[in-house]
Design a binder for these strands. Structure first.
Lengths: 241, 241
DNA sequence: AATTTCACCGATAGTACTATCGGTGAAATT
DNA sequence: AATTTCACCGATAGTACTATCGGTGAAATT
């Protein structure tokens, strides 16, 4: 209720934040085509011409948006790694690995939506941001997969690992979007499916890898397989052929 | 060299085709934001105002584009099914299932690019088309997976199968785009990875399915596993635990 | 207290585009 | 041969937006 006496720079910064917030909301709701200095300024509660007190043009605002989006992304990835390290035991590790990114997307769905739109749009100012984000996610997933016991030795294996990470990443996005659209109510189920997909890929990767890898790795894999099978419920025995 | 004496309606239809072609090219190269009656008409070699002889507005042209895209999509899916039926033996079936869509995408990459862009863009006139296409692809993949030996019995299993198809579909698109962008030179490798992903998912689906399914299904699965393992090279034995 | 700074304002010139309108000439019809 | 049709044209009114400019008043500085 009490009036808040802001200094001039504080007030300016507040207006700037309002502009950024308004732009993000419009970007998410109407897409990049819906963005205009008129709409953004009006939504932020200032005159259209005052937009230029804060940004050289819309392109500059989008750049700031992309930088902040990137920072939030990196933070959420750090957070994910931290949680993964603290994650309870071997049994949950694999599944946690996929549930964490899903949750992270669902906490800020607009980031992914904007990224997915801009990724292949030549007219988008955010294309660079989208491409970098996609690459970052890909690397993140590749590191996750590596943490699950597989390390690539030669170029072919590295490329394969990247492709798998790319595929899993795309599947993660698709399932998260499906969840947000209400098609897949249960995120845990989505995590299960990503786990199953990745286990198939890792199994194949190990089976066809240049170097079979030390026995320890294989033992770890077996353990993970067993754990997953147990967690899944009544298991089909892996081999009677 | 000889002049081609076209009737009036033939000439009109030709111009219409030119407009559609020009719009598709601009849409692919510059995105939906780059489309304007000025550019499209100029690219088609007519005056801007003549655009309206053929279409009520740009929206109508985009609708026609979407319809034609949808038709091409359905045709390529029919073609894929035909080829899959004619496909040689059990060994290649699983792999063919994934190579065919990859090839189909790479033959008309602009269709997927446009679809991926429009899919989550509220401002896009093509959003409906993109959503329908995505659903069609999803169903296509779900049918493919079903053809590989799995049929869903209850609602949970059907939803799971849809999620897996969604994930595999997203991965297919991602790998195809990566191929087109030059990151993954070999489409066969991409098909291998999709195969591996789907085998993991199907394995899990069967292991956790409500009804374990008839023995025949399981036998077929075992055979597919063996075939894939043989094709893959020196196999890691499935179980020594 | 006097002066300076500056965030914000309204007005507006300039740009890009859409969609309409009357005119034209060759094809089609009579 | 005379008449009608119509695909296409140039001109233009209308719309939406960008980016600049001079003005204003309160905060900040002197």
């Amino acid at each position: 209720m009490t009036s808040t006496p802001l200094t001039r720079s504080e007030a300016k910064d507040l207006t700037r934040r309002k502009l950024i917030r308004a732009a993000l909301a419009i970007l998410d709701e109407e897409g990049e085509a819906g963005l205009s200095t008129v709409k953004v300024a009006k939504a932020a509660g200032i005159a259209q011409s005052s937009f230029y007190v804060h940004f050289k043009d819309m392109q500059e605002l989008l750049l700031v948006l992309a930088e902040e989006g990137g920072a939030r992304l990196r933070a959420s990835m750090r957070e994910a790694r931290r949680r993964a390290r603290e994650s309870p035991g071997d049994l949950d590790l694999h599944r946690e690995t996929f549930r964490i990114p899903l949750e992270s997307i669902c906490r800020h769905p607009e980031l992914l939506r904007i990224q997915l739109r801009a990724r292949h749009d030549p007219s988008s100012s955010l294309r660079g941001f989208a491409t970098e984000s996609a690459a970052a996610y890909r690397e993140h997933h590749a590191a996750d997969l590596a943490a699950l016991g597989y390390t690539a030795d030669d170029e072919r294996d590295r490329r394969r690992l990247e492709m798998i990470a790319d595929g899993i990443n795309a599947a993660t996005n698709a399932l998260a979007m499906g969840h947000l659209e209400g098609r897949y109510p249960d995120l845990d189920e989505a995590a299960d499916i990503l786990t199953a997909l990745s286990r198939g890929a890792l199994r194949w990767l190990k089976a066809t890898s240049a170097k079979p890898g030390p026995a320890a790795d294989q033992a770890a894999d077996q353990a993970a397989d067993q754990a997953a099978d147990q967690a899944a419920g009544p298991a089909e025995g892996p081999g009677s052929a």
